[in-house]
Simulated assay, not measured.
Amino acid sequence: MNTYIPRRLTVAAVVAASALLGTACSAAESATPEASGSTPDVVEKPVSSSTEPETKPERRPYTISFGGDVHFEGVLRSRLNANPKTALGPIAKVLGAADIAMVNLETAITTGGTPAPGKQYTFRAPASALTALKAAGVDVASMANNHGMDYMQSGLADSLAAIKRSRFPVVGIGRNAAEAYKPWRTTVNGNRVAVIGATQVLDAEFIQAWTATDQQGGLASAKNEARLLQEVRKARKNSDTVIVHLHWGTELQKCPNEAQRSLAPKLVAAGADVVVGGHAHILLGSGYLGRGYVNYGMGNFVFYNWGPETGRTGVLTLTINGRRVIKDRWTPATIQGGVPVPVTGVNGQRATANWKALRGCTGLTPTPS
């Protein structure tokens, strides 16, 4: 019979108690911890002498969906003002079905300020734009693009304030370089995911004024390849999946340009598992570069003008486990009234086949190698 004795009893009391109970206690059984005024009189659960090593949660595959360029000009501003929670239309169901969803937010978040001098197209939107993204199932956006600072430093200050108030994650922009290049981090199904945003496209006259430095707020620039690659290597050290979202490409050019073809393998070599982005206003090819996955152009997504080519869009959904991109899936859509509307049936099958064919001029492969 095992007899449990409260900690505060003295050795003499133990002996007396044992005698009264008529129990022959061994020396090991009658030894007790020293009395302590802070130790409660409770019966302690025996502790096993064997200790099992802690096990990390098992990783399981997760999905991340990407949409292309988003702003809220023209007809989209009317939708946003009418109801931010439905501003992105039916494509929200596709975005919301993924574990993570991401888009490129190609606008300054401000209602004031002065537009960039001499710039032909300048985009801005109220803070409700972030509400609209969140309501549509978007989890993170990049503002590292050639419109993120269309309203210069005052617009940047407004954008950063709106982001802070909304608590909506935005990458590629910040009060300094450290903030701009800082990845957004999340854990899903046991996978530690890091997302970095940067732009390879900046108007020559604004490169200096718009690029984040240690002393200046602005955008994360992929033109500073050394800094971007450094951040990818840094993220690689404590992440299971590293994703780089880029603004890159040449407008209306159907194949990746030399700058894209040069940067992509460097990012994969530095530790990026996924490289995805856009700028060209049309779709470009996707596929594997070694074991990394690269998308060269997501096209327009929520956009105020569209045509036969620029209106073709969709959602790219990747299934990932750790560093391995298990599969890609394309949900084709066309822009109608400024928002993407999924294409189904025979037309959807044809659109998906056309999207896969875009890989032909990219040098990418349909499976990892």
Rank of each mutant, 00 (worst) to 15 (best):
N2W: 09
N2Y: 11
T3I: 15
V11Y: 08
L20K: 12
S36N: 08
E44M: 13
K45R: 13
P46H: 02
V47G: 07
S48A: 15
E58L: 10
T63K: 02
H71P: 08
I91E: 12
A98F: 07
I100S: 04
V103E: 05
T110H: 01
T111D: 01
P115N: 00
A127M: 00
S128G: 05
K134R: 13
A135C: 06
V140P: 04
M143K: 04
A144Q: 15
H147A: 03
H147L: 05
H147R: 03
Y151R: 08
A157D: 15
S159K: 01
G172I: 00
W184A: 11
T186A: 04
V188T: 00
L202H: 08
F206D: 01
I207H: 09
A209H: 10
T213L: 15
Q216N: 14
G217Y: 04
A220G: 03
R227L: 12
Q230G: 14
E251P: 00
N257L: 09
N257C: 13
A259G: 12
Q260R: 09
P265A: 11
A269I: 06
V274M: 02
V275D: 03
V276T: 12
G277D: 14
A280Y: 07
G290C: 10
M298K: 04
N300C: 10
F301W: 09
T313F: 05
T313A: 09
I320Q: 01
R324L: 11
V339H: 00
V341Y: 06
P342F: 04
P342I: 05
G345A: 00
G345T: 01
W355Q: 11
K356F: 05
A357N: 11
C361Y: 01
T365F: 04
